[in-house]
Design a protein around this nucleic acid. Structure first.
Lengths: 357, 357
DNA sequence: GCTTAGCACTCAAAAAGGTGGAGTGCTAAA
DNA sequence: TTTAGCACTCCACCTTTTTGAGTGCTAAGC
């Protein structure tokens, strides 16, 4: 059953007041916040209804109301007013996004800090590429025992490694290897780099010292680790929130967030180019059942997708957070994805059970 | 005045019991812990004396004793028993230190996590080089608009950057630049890369497009940022400690630690090759007055010094922490500094006021 | 002189009791 | 359907009491 206009107004007031104050909201407060032309008793009746429908709940009988996950969901989907960024905020983000010429790792790091700064919640950055291949292999001969491997990957990431070996080789060998790798190992995925390919390359260049497998090993390792990554920053911000007055709670959440595999699983969902909100129990992970996650994804070019998000209590200023993240993601898409901005706030992707109880 | 044997024994018991329990220690507990052949009344008399001398204090009149910074200092300097690592611990560290072929950044990161894991305190890693210079510059031509800069620095660190420009250049230009940079920009410090040098180089190669200054800019930036760095990991571990039951306290400390400039200043002290303990008020920073820092430094080769340390409450298991850090530092020196192990636990460097009051 | 049994004393922390007030649900009338 | 009115609930806060670990002191003993 669709809620009446008045109930929606009341629900919105409760949610927003609670977001501000972190205290259960009473009928009188709702009255003054909505400015409705009725008495607090009427509000109380409505609150009872919203309670019965599962949008609100009471910590105890004689307390005010607190939104449930269902209440927040409705708020996010329908009630929340779109929050425009102030000129200053937009300016600050634009300045922060002037990151041309930095590697993707560095960009993610900076942007994560920016998101923390802007929202005062812990920020998470996730990147994932469908496929990563090597575009170019370059070997730099240093001395008879060492050389540098430089790999250019899709996504214009450059990786390098200095190799130091206990036996010596010539510049010519390194040059020849370089050529071979560029012709046989570029443009292929990690799974195509088989022991057979390595062995046949070894034979082709007459490498009896195992240089080929050293280089191939680095290729495999790099491709594997470059597929994606995840990071958190600003975890300490949780400690300022009343919902984390208990250090044990904060510790559990921070611990969960510090494991990048956990974060990566957050990106598993199939949306692309929208802001996504996961409220409390909508989160798959047990550790996040009391928290909300807001994420925006962006196009990082070369088949790569990035996510910038924040984690906080369910009592979160969704509107402001969503607007900021969307703006950041849009900027990143422009910066990295060659202009194809894919994110736009206003059409939030909805995940979660919205059916009536 | 030198303390009597018995008082030392009692002080040690108080410190160790307090490290274990985090509760003020009473005379009976001391009795059972020391096994001294006297009554608790005698212990009480001794406690009063230790109190007067400033080694112990009472949270309130009718409570047990808690060590003061001075008490911890004496404990660390004289009373603490050297803690040998168990076979398993040493094994674990050795395994964790099998990091050949990783860059220094990655090594610091891994080692920091290891230290956190082993001590369950936040770990900090600091590195500082007296001077960093470029050993080799290599430019890899990709296409008419882009090339990669690869820098080999002292300390065998390799840095790279992909440069993308809005105008085109030839492979020959890049090759020539490469040669020039290798001859004029290697082996010199950041301060020697002057606008004049850049301008004269520009004229010498006939570069009218500003490629020279792009590359030189990267050199300067890289040299500046490679001089040193600092990082923390495992901050959340503080939350498990009773002294940080107040989230505000934890937040302040974590915030302080998250600023790498603050960390860098910790390494300012002149010791090298020893374990260093800074107890409570011995720390210069206000934010650390209630905490202790234990650090071990290692030789990272090529004029580079590294520090691995942990931060915790003054109630810290100094003996175990010092032993672990010393062992790690020793391993790192071997790994990076070419075998010249400089760290040895047992001769702790002492900092702090030890004069009698 | 040092040691120790004994005891009164102190003080934080926990338990128990009391009060106020914000907020509710319900009723009955408009 | 709304609303004034009222009894009721229950947390939050305060005060008081109790408890007990631990002290300092004293006076006797070695």
């Amino acid at each position: 059953m669709e809620l009446s206009q008045r109930r929606k107004k009341i629900l919105r007031a409760v949610v927003e007041e609670y977001i501000d104050s972190a205290e259960p909201v009473g009928s009188k407060t709702v009255l003054s916040r909505t400015g409705l032309d009725c008495s607090s008793a009427t509000i109380r009746n409505e609150l009872v209804a919203l309670d019965k429908e599962g949008y609100l709940e009471q910590p105890h009988t004689s307390a005010g109301r607190v939104p449930t996950a269902k209440g927040y969901r409705l708020y996010v989907n329908e009630l929340m007013r779109e929050r425009e960024l102030t000129h200053d905020e937009a300016e600050a983000i634009n300045r922060g996004l002037d990151l041309r010429g930095r590697g993707h790792d560095k960009i993610m790091d900076t942007v994560g800090h920016m998101a923390t700064e802007l929202t005062s919640y812990p920020a998470l950055t996730i990147s994932a590429a469908a496929t990563v291949t090597v575009k170019r292999v370059e070997l730099i001969y240093l001395d008879p025992n060492s050389f540098i491997i430089v790999l250019l990957l899709t996504g214009d990431t450059v990786k390098n490694k200095l190799v130091h070996l206990p036996f010596s080789f010539s510049q010519v060998t390194i040059t020849r290897l370089s050529a071979v790798f560029n012709s046989s190992f570029t443009g292929i995925g990690e799974e195509k780099i088989t022991p057979e390919l390595i062995a046949s390359t070894e034979r082709a260049v007459g490498d009896t010292m195992g240089l080929t497998s050293v280089i191939a090993g680095f290729l495999i390792e790099t491709l594997a680790t470059s597929r994606g990554g995840a990071n958190v920053s600003g975890e300490a911000n949780l400690l300022k929130l009343p919902e984390f007055r208990d250090p044990e709670k904060a510790h559990k959440l921070i611990n969960y967030l510090s494991n990048s595999e956990n974060l990566a699983s957050l990106s598993a969902s199939p949306d692309f180019g929208d802001v996504k909100v996961l409220i409390g129990p909508e989160n798959a992970a047990l550790e996040l059942k009391d928290s909300s996650v807001v994420m925006a994804s962006y196009n990082a070019g070369d088949n790569m997708r990035g996510i910038i998000g924040v984690v906080g209590p369910t009592r979160m200023d969704y509107s402001a957070v969503a607007a900021k993240l969307a703006y950041i993601a849009e900027g990143l898409s422009k910066l990295l994805g060659g202009g194809a901005a894919t994110s736009g706030y206003g059409k939030l992707m909805i995940k979660g059970d919205d059916s009536d109880g």
